[in-house]
């Protein structure tokens, strides 16, 4: 197990290095001069040249890259073009918000999705199975902004139950924060719930047909034991794979949700930076989000090894 974990960690580091390279490369697909684009039309050539120098844009490619990565590893991502503030300070405010919302959405989609999938698999073909399956199909197809706007329209504007949008830190005022976070978290978790339910249903159905499950039934085990101990545990591998992918989906979804509900997280920061051509924030954001997702993938890989010993020896 130890060598398996070490191998996975080394692989993650390699992938992280490639991600850093890719996010640095982003600057080079930008048509025109990034410094000129950042400073706007009123800048004089001398100002642009000075800014290029400040951003290390006048150095050779590899020198720039190592300078950028070297600083990033030490937590220094440079200074934002639009905010004129160190990017690490900006991230310290916005990343926790996104992680907080994503965490709740992750918990919600895991619990609801897996439970719904198990119910469908047990009651296959029944009314409940059909209703949940139809809802899961819709849940995958529906755009997140539709869910957000729908929520705002009914629960905030028509029924007046919840605030329309905004963000309060849970440490400042937990109740207000939860009222504001409720709709974003639900909108964020719907695609996840739908995907989890579908995956759990199909991998449970796969397992339910197996001989050892018939044995479990025939030796008189209770339904709960058969389902949880025998069926679910063996159906878990594809579900855990999806849990890893879920992190990707949630971070991506939070870009939209934060925009709809006006929440000052990473997603809205990236969209704002896209508008203001703040490529330094975008590069750093891509790297940081990549690192978060890689870390989540590492945990998933390790839990594979724990769930299924065969995986350790590949």
């Amino acid at each position: 197990m130890a060598s398996f974990i070490i191998r996975r960690i080394l692989l993650t580091i390699l992938v992280l290095i490639i991600i850093s390279f890719l996010s640095f490369l982003l600057l080079y697909i930008m048509p025109g001069d990034p410094a000129a684009a950042a400073l706007g039309l009123s800048a004089t050539p001398a100002q642009i040249e000075a800014y290029r120098h400040e951003l290390w844009l006048d150095r050779p490619f590899m020198v720039q890259y190592f300078h950028w990565v070297g600083n990033a590893v030490r937590g220094d991502f440079g200074e934002s073009i639009a905010y004129k503030e160190p990017i690490s300070t900006i991230f310290k405010q916005s990343l926790p918000i996104t992680l907080y919302l994503s965490m709740w959405a992750f918990i919600l989609s895991t619990i609801l999705g897996i439970s719904a999938g198990i119910i469908c698999a047990i009651r296959r073909g029944g009314l409940l199975d059909q209703v949940i399956s139809v809802m899961a199909n819709i849940g995958i197809a529906v755009p997140i902004f539709f869910l957000g706007i729908l929520g705002i329209y009914f629960f905030a504007l028509k029924l007046n139950w919840l605030p329309i949008m905004g963000w309060t830190s849970p440490t400042d005022n937990f109740i207000e924060s939860s009222r504001q976070a409720l709709m974003p978290v639900i909108a964020l978790s719907v695609p996840g719930i739908a995907m989890m339910a579908r995956q759990t249903r199909s991998s449970m159905l796969e397992v339910i047909r197996q001989d050892y499950l018939r044995t479990a039934w025939s030796k008189g085990l209770k339904e709960r034991q058969v389902i949880i101990r025998h069926a679910l545990k063996n159906a878990l591998i594809p579900i855990v794979t999806l849990l890893g992918l879920q992190v990707r989906t949630l971070v991506g979804g939070s870009v939209v949700v934060e925009q709809v509900f006006n929440i000052p997280g990473m997603g809205r920061l990236l969209v704002y930076s896209a508008f203001s051509k703040d490529f330094i924030i975008i590069q750093a954001g891509v790297l940081l989000i990549g690192a978060v997702v890689c870390l989540a993938n590492l945990l998933v890989d390790i839990s594979y090894g724990w769930l299924d010993p065969r995986v350790r020896y590949d």
């Binding site: 600057l27 990707r248 939209v256 990236l270 896209a274 051509k277 954001g285």
Partner: peptide, 14 residues
Amino acid sequence: ALPPMVLMLAIAAM
């Protein structure tokens, strides 16, 4: 490893 949404956003921004 990058969320498609973030990747698209970065490319579209550039």
